[in-house]
C-alpha cells in the first residue's frame, strides 16, 4: 500500500516521469473482483491481510457496488465510498467492506443511485491517521458506469 486519495496528484506527477508504466497499465485487462473477496475476512488492526486480497494491490480492478458519500450531503463529489449494501439500516460497513474511491484530479460526478461498476487501480493496505486505521482499500477510479 503506497498512498491515499489525497496523494493522487503527486502520484500522477510521478507517473509523468515514467511514461511506459501508465501505458502498460492501460493495456491491462481489469481484474474482476467483488466484495465477497474484499470483505471475506474479519478485519483487525495490524493483521496480515489475506493473500487473495493483497494480490490485488496495484492491479487495475473492476468492482460493482453502491456509491456513498463519506459525509452526508448533496452535490457532485471528487471522492466517494463503494459499498456492498445500499441500506444503511443494515449495519455499519466495516473497513474491509468499503473501497475509498478517488476520481482524477479536478473531476467530479453525481452520486449514482443504483449499482455502479468502477474500474481503476486498487491499493491495498492499512492507511492510518492519528494512529487509527482509516482505510484498507483505496481505488483511483478511472471509470464509473
Amino acid at each position: 500500500m503506497s498512498r491515499r486519495p489525497g496523494s493522487r496528484a503527486s502520484m500522477r506527477h510521478m507517473k509523468s516521469f515514467a511514461l511506459l508504466l501508465p501505458l502498460c497499465l492501460l493495456m491491462q485487462d481489469p481484474v474482476r473482483t467483488n466484495f465477497a473477496v474484499l470483505a471475506g475476512f474479519e478485519f483487525s488492526k495490524g493483521m496480515k491481510l489475506p493473500d487473495e486480497v493483497t494480490a490485488l494491490d496495484g492491479k487495475i480492478v473492476q468492482l460493482s457496488g453502491f456509491m456513498a458519500r463519506e459525509v452526508p450531503g448533496s452535490g457532485p463529489v471528487g471522492q466517494f465510498l463503494m459499498i456492498n449494501d445500499a441500506c444503511g439500516c443494515n449495519g455499519t460497513p466495516k473497513l474491509n467492506e468499503i473501497v475509498f474511491c478517488a476520481l482524477a484530479e479536478g473531476t467530479t460526478m453525481e452520486i449514482k443511485a443504483g449499482i455502479v461498476q468502477v474500474t481503476g487501480k486498487l491499493y491495498v493496505g492499512e492507511q492510518t491517521e492519528e494512529d487509527e486505521v482509516v482505510s484498507i482499500y483505496v481505488l483511483d477510479a478511472d471509470s464509473v458506469q
Binding site: 450531503g73 448533496s74 443511485a113 443504483g114
Partner: peptide, 24 residues
C-alpha cells in the same frame, strides 16, 4: 435529478425506464 435531498437513512430509489439513470 439523480439526487433529491440528503439521504441519511430512509430512501427511495426510482427508475422510470431503463434508458434513464436511477434517482435517489
Amino acid at each position: 435529478p439523480q439526487e433529491n435531498g440528503v439521504v441519511i437513512c430512509d430512501k427511495l430509489r426510482l427508475q422510470l425506464r431503463t434508458d434513464r439513470p436511477q434517482a435517489a
